[in-house]
Design a protein around this nucleic acid. Structure first.
Lengths: 295, 295
DNA sequence: CATCGGCTATGCATTTTTGTATGACTGAAC
DNA sequence: GTTCAGTCATACAAAAATGCATAGCCGATG
């Protein structure tokens, strides 16, 4: 087995897979379409495999190509991580660190924390990746992640921040107009804001919060940010972080019936422990989140 | 942040890191020394970092370069995995699968299993990686691993094979000449074969097997294979798999005092579940190992 | 049905990368 | 001290990859 496949070819291959066409990949990669085309041909020859079925409206990836995608993405992640760790040379805190968090945390909680951190270390650059999908730190999609789950991998360095409490909230204006529900049954007469497609996380909670079911929602949104915005604008009653509700002057509703504790963890690959930029960011996130929880 | 670092540069960089010199890397990569040198220079410029301090006796990697090594290795693993999964296209079972196992398992147990498997699927190619270090399947150092530990990662598909029992053994000739020890104390008068540097695994067992300590060993070898060979040639008394001892006509000694159960698992990345070549190999390994355990 | 915007494929000139050959240096061995 | 095997750096020619321009094809749109 000849190991002589140029790595550039994989990069072009991934580009085509992502963009769906030679031209698109060329644009994304900053090279020209004929070059990308030649790369793909070269890769197919090197591997002895058909990767795409050509059509003039684009390229259709074969099964083989699809199966290779995950590894190609991982390879790209590694390349990016490599570039990041290279930016970490000086003794000082500098370079790029990539932080992953949920949308709500990333939009509502992290900005002030990161702003302060940047003020302290102006040479530090931060990439914020917001996604509710659990990022894979081992594959280096991010350097540091804020998660609601205790990490399981031994190679991960984790610190428990505490518990974020979720509860039902509404804007005072809404409650003034529609009344404050006193029992769970009262909710039926209210505009309840909830999810549309249940995520894995919601399914896991599942039955634990009864009477909070898709069919009962008057307003459905999969984006947690959208739900939060709806609550804030008095559209109805929905779940959000208690700390956020308090901060924004929202009123909590039925606190005894609806309360959810989310364990919060900050996680980092243990190899990065001795990287100043990661270490510093890790600590700043921990401190900032604890402050947020304290309210 | 320009993402325009050619991936080839990383490959040459890793080559230099591995080989310790431009010339060595060039040989390993099948290109010439000036090219590797230029690649390194290009990478240093692209990243704005000094990766090596030049000397005419070789290149000395900087801290930065060393910190980047792990990611570079991971990237290389991904490239290799990519090439392997490409070889998996046909409907039939073909292509390369990389199996990792301990030295003893790999030398003493797997060969017949793999031979039979290859007879059944001639288009299947197998790379056997023997190492007592726990291979990292998530980083794709291997497709399938035989391990003595229950895997912890959720992304790994694992099957428990059973328990491998270790016990003290000696060749009948040795025992005929030196007598069969009847008590643990008797061992002091015997040639006991053991480890030199305790591995993490041995340290973990630690005190569980008393009277089996480095200082008491007459023959020390870190290679399990060497220990096994010594036992087989009547050099003394040592630990080995009971199944192997039985197969080779070794006699077990002090079975009640020295018995160790090792859980055995076969592990695979879950993404590979639908890869015929991996699936088939996984099953063959499971079956073969169970047969081995049954004796 | 003609047009337009998207795509791929190909020929050709140019740029870039690579290899070859060589020189200069180091450290170990004799 | 000299030789030898190893290293890196550099100059120049050869090879290869790239970009440009263009042709051809498809599908949507008016």
């Amino acid at each position: 087995m000849t190991e002589q496949v140029a790595w550039e070819l994989y990069r072009s291959f991934l580009g085509v897979l992502r963009e769906g066409s030679l031209s698109g990949a060329a644009r994304a990669l900053g090279i020209t379409q004929p070059t990308v085309g030649r790369h793909v041909v070269a890769l197919e020859q090197a591997l002895g495999v058909t990767l795409f079925t050509r059509s003039q409206t684009g390229l259709l990836p074969t099964e083989t190509a699809l199966a290779m995608r995950a590894d190609a993405e991982a390879m790209a992640n590694m390349a990016a991580a490599l570039a990041r760790s290279a930016s970490d040379h000086g003794n000082g805190v500098s370079g790029v660190v990539r932080v992953s968090a949920s949308e709500v945390i990333g939009v509502e909680v992290l900005p002030p924390v990161l702003a302060r951190l940047r003020e302290q270390y102006p040479a530090l650059q931060i990439e914020l990746v917001l996604s509710n999908r659990v990022q894979d730190l081992l594959q280096r999609e991010a350097d540091i992640a804020v998660r609601m789950l205790r990490p399981e991998q031994a190679q991960l360095l984790a610190r428990r921040i505490g518990e974020i409490e979720l509860g039902l909230h509404a804007h005072p204006v809404y409650l003034a107009r529609h009344g404050v529900p006193q029992t769970v049954a009262d909710l039926a007469a209210h505009a309840v804001i909830g999810y549309d497609q249940p995520t894995a996380f919601i399914r896991k909670l599942g039955k634990s919060v009864q009477a909070f079911d898709r069919d009962t929602f008057a307003l459905r949104a999969d984006s947690d940010l959208a739900q939060l915005a709806l609550i804030r604008h008095g559209a109805g009653i929905g779940m959000c972080q208690v700390a956020l509700g308090r901060r924004d002057g929202l009123q909590r509703v039925l606190p005894q019936a609806f309360s959810l504790q989310l364990e919060t963890w900050i996680t980092m690959h243990e190899d990065l422990r001795h990287s100043p930029r990661c270490r510093v960011t890790f600590d700043a996130l921990a401190e900032g989140l604890m402050l947020h929880l304290a309210g």
